[in-house]
Structure formats: structure tokens, C-alpha cells
């Protein structure tokens, strides 16, 4: 299945582009997508997605088709072909 992944804020700066198209096996979970991205991207970008231990950063807001994915359900949320996944790392510019 094909997914559209959109980057924002410091993650977008680190990745160097606004979005990617990602191909993953049918039924892959949101966690699998984030792990896939972290493996593909360089360390600076991956650091916005996963912590040193490899787990998804608790403060990364993941939005699938305009709805926030609950933090506790990232591992069990299955994605579908055509889903748009927006990744929002925290910002605090004042």
C-alpha cells in the first residue's frame, strides 16, 4: 500500500522536504511506519521520531487523515492504502 507522509516544523527542516510517498505491506501499523521512516532518514531527522531506545517519541503528534492518533494506539493502529500521515514534532517558538 502507498501512504503519503507529511513533515512539519523542525522535522521538515531536518528531512529537507515537505512530504514523501512510502510503500509498506498491507495492514502495517502506524508504529511500523514510524520505525520505517526512522530507518530511512538520517539521524537528525530520525531523532524527531524515535528516542535513543528506539521507541516513538511520546511528544510526537501523529495525525492520520486529519485525526490525531491516540498515543496508546500507535502500535495497534493499522494503516490503509492512501492514508495521509502528518507528523508534528513539538514546537515552542515564542
Amino acid at each position: 500500500m502507498k501512504l503519503r507522509v507529511q513533515y512539519t516544523a523542525q522535522l521538515r527542516t531536518a528531512v529537507g522536504r515537505t512530504e514523501d510517498e512510502v510503500e509498506l505491506p498491507e495492514g502495517s501499523s502506524l508504529a511500523a511506519l514510524v520505525e520505517h521512516l526512522a530507518a530511512q532518514l538520517d539521524d537528525a531527522a530520525a531523532g524527531h521520531l524515535v528516542g535513543p531506545g528506539g521507541g516513538i517519541r511520546p511528544s510526537l503528534l501523529v495525525v492520520v487523515n486529519e485525526a490525531a492518533a491516540p498515543a496508546h494506539a500507535v502500535a495497534t493502529t493499522s494503516l490503509q492504502d492512501g492514508d495521509v500521515v502528518l507528523l508534528l514534532p513539538p514546537i515552542a517558538g515564542g
Binding site: R57, S59, A92
Partner: peptide, 8 residues
């Protein structure tokens, strides 16, 4: 933000 974000 359940913890102070480390990467900001």
C-alpha cells in the same frame, strides 16, 4: 507533550 521534548 507528556515529557519535555528532548529535540526542541
Amino acid at each position: 507533550y507528556p515529557e519535555p521534548p528532548a529535540n526542541w
